[in-house]
Amino acid sequence: MIGQPCNDLRPLQEILDRYPREEAALIQVLQDVQRAYNYLPSDAIEKVAEGLGVPLARVYSVATFYKAFTLTPRGKTLVKVCLGTACHIRGAKQLVEEVERVAGIKPGETTPDRSLTLETVNCVGACAMAPVVIVGAKYHGGVKTADIRTILGSAASLAK
């Protein structure tokens, strides 16, 4: 089994109950699982395969194909740095580096205390405010490297 188990499948059952038992529901179910657990636990993936009557291999192929899914637990707060074209030419790369410096993690990584995960995304469609950083559900536009520390604020135990 790839990934990590969660050992609490109650939220999963509620999710499965909301959808018809068919393959077409797979992506929607996995999205809800990702949202509920902050990742796709290995035991939950197994149950999803059973619940929808889809081969386990197919569930894993979908889970690893789409960007919305992760097999490792994410931190409490997700920091997304947008790398859309408009953000790129307005200095998004420097923002990623500054988050790396301040939080001590690289894109895709989570801080040891699981408070924060850094991800880069290929455009969140807020291009008029480039460069954009999203912390949790909050969008920040026109971000400068000097703003990063404030933006991350209490979300994480920062380096230094």
Binding site: Q28, V62, K67, F69
Partner: peptide, 25 residues
């Protein structure tokens, strides 16, 4: 309404339809 899984290729029509079917796009 179906929420995409975050794959650029799913903007391509035949990939999008596979994704709607719950498959890899």
């Amino acid at each position: 309404v179906s929420r995409g899984g975050g794959a650029f290729v799913c903007g391509e029509s035949s990939a999008l339809m596979r994704s709607l079917e719950g498959k890899v796009g």
